[in-house]
Design a protein around this nucleic acid. Sequence first.
DNA 1: ATCATTGCAAAAGATTTGCAAGGTC
DNA 2: GACCTTGCAAATCTTTTGCAATGAT
Lengths: 168, 168
Amino acid sequence: MDRDETTLERYKTAASPEERFHEYLQSRGMRSTRQRQVLLEQVFAQHDHFDADQLIEKLPRRGDADYVSRPTVYRTLGEFVDAGLLKKFEVDGRGVYEFDYGYPEHDHLHCSDCDRLIEFQADGLEQILREVAERHGFRVKDHTLIVDGVCEECFRAKRRSRRRLDRI
Amino acid sequence: MDRDETTLERYKTAASPEERFHEYLQSRGMRSTRQRQVLLEQVFAQHDHFDADQLIEKLPRRGDADYVSRPTVYRTLGEFVDAGLLKKFEVDGRGVYEFDYGYPEHDHLHCSDCDRLIEFQADGLEQILREVAERHGFRVKDHTLIVDGVCEECFRAKRRSRRRLDRI
DNA sequence: ATCATTGCAAAAGATTTGCAAGGTC
DNA sequence: GACCTTGCAAATCTTTTGCAATGAT
């Protein structure tokens, strides 16, 4: 929902997501199907966070020639993750996906009021994790950092309504 | 699973978890029941990470006078979280609980091989989060940082078996 | 033609809920 | 006695799976 231009500019990679995915398919003897095309386009049209349901809402409905069933959506999202195109994490029990391929490392602020995810880059974090890992002899593959709280807009909105109540 | 003594020593608080929970109940007109007692004891007997199923395994079975049903386990865990006694986070889609009341802030390494959670304290992290929050006008309530990878033991085990294979 | 892929229906796993019966204050 | 809690059964929600039909190479 909130990938601003400055961040997006840094997203430059050799092969496009489409090319990359086709390589992935070929290398595994998998096939290029209409469903995979439809999903590839829809997923990489906008670089937002989304869950399976949000994606399905944007897809053609049952009956349409480009309809994709729910199981196939889940299967294909898994393939995108496998291919290194998407990253998956969990928020409140459900899976959330976001663009990953060639996109800079970042973490998220999660507003418990409006449920929005806001990206941020924390410079010192990598260094800290390296040290922790070394101290524990731990081989890091990945990490998830989600900071819960209230975003600026929601905080202001709350303050406004609180003032309104005070006046009564 | 892995709370060592040095960390546990720091766990000192004014009121005991039991006292604290009873205050919580009273302040809300809730009642002290046998089930809540049983769970309170079992949960705070050992300070490990656990999910609902692991807790239920340790409880008396159906038929026993101290049996607690699954829905009540879930309901009561929620109350413990509400009362500030437990902290809840998600690992691989299921809820994991841990002691929180008076326990020092920490985060977790998660071994994808043995599924163990290893606690760590990262000194600079708070500072980093404060800065990020300030930059975004974000009111932080909490955070979850889980570092995925392979723990020392599992890494060694893998290396051993790899050598064994090489020899063939 | 071969074998991967899909959609359907159904299953699965974790957690939640409606409600009548029972327990606490 | 009032009303909070519980256990049961069933529902929910999200994701996964078996399988026969369909599609890609």
